[in-house]
Amino acid sequence: MTQPIISVRGVQHRYDRQTILKDIKFDIVEGAFVGLVGPNGSGKTTLIKLLLGIEKLQKGQITAFGHPIQKFKNKGRISYVSQKANSFNRGFPATVKEVVSIGIVSKENKQTKENLVYNALKQVNMESYIDRNIGDLSGGQQQRVFIARAIVSNPKLLILDEPTVGVDSENVEHFYRLLSKLNKELGITLVLVSHDIGAITTYVTDLLCLNKTIHYHGDPGDFENMPDEQRSKLYGHRIHTITHDH
């Protein structure tokens, strides 16, 4: 069996008196496309912040690439597209090139940097926008630029927190296909956080249902075939079958 790149054991997390996460245990293996779903307030964002090392681990263990998360030196191996990327300051005076350059973690000369930025933008079909101001782009285009920023240093694992918020439905499809391509062609392991369980099950290889604790971890197809009642219980919120016409 492939060695997991992320391993979570017995994680518990509280804010003040409120328990956010309890008895969290799961592995992420290399090459997987994991959908992390759960209703609002289920602890999704907290869990990924723990995985990213920007929220302090209170109880339990998280191992990233074989190292305890507290001692893990990222060096571009884990990258991130935040929810906030959608609500960043639109008036920020920066070009697409400058924004993508933020993602370069190693020391490179100017030419190498330019090549890295160009190639990352090419992966998301945004290379012709390289000198445009980031604020002039549409929500969907901006999100693709943020993907480019996240992949410019060739990460092994990419975590996306509700990246389709603020992207119109037509572009959401494109967006998921783009993620699928990154997963299959570049071999990047993906964790996609969403509260929209219906849309992502088509693309992901693993489904993780979180509502304070993990209620389901397995094949998205098996989950889809369960009766509504059982799925609602696992998801932690009412689910109705919605047919997606692609």
């Binding site: 990222n74 884990i78 990258s79 906030k84 990327a85 920066a94 350059s101 933020i102 993602g103």
Partner: peptide, 18 residues
């Protein structure tokens, strides 16, 4: 410069990148 720019643009991403 680069770190200040990253932090100003998106502090969460900046922190994730170290």
């Amino acid at each position: 410069y680069k770190r200040l720019f990253a932090l100003s643009f998106d502090d969460e991403f900046a922190r994730v990148s170290g």
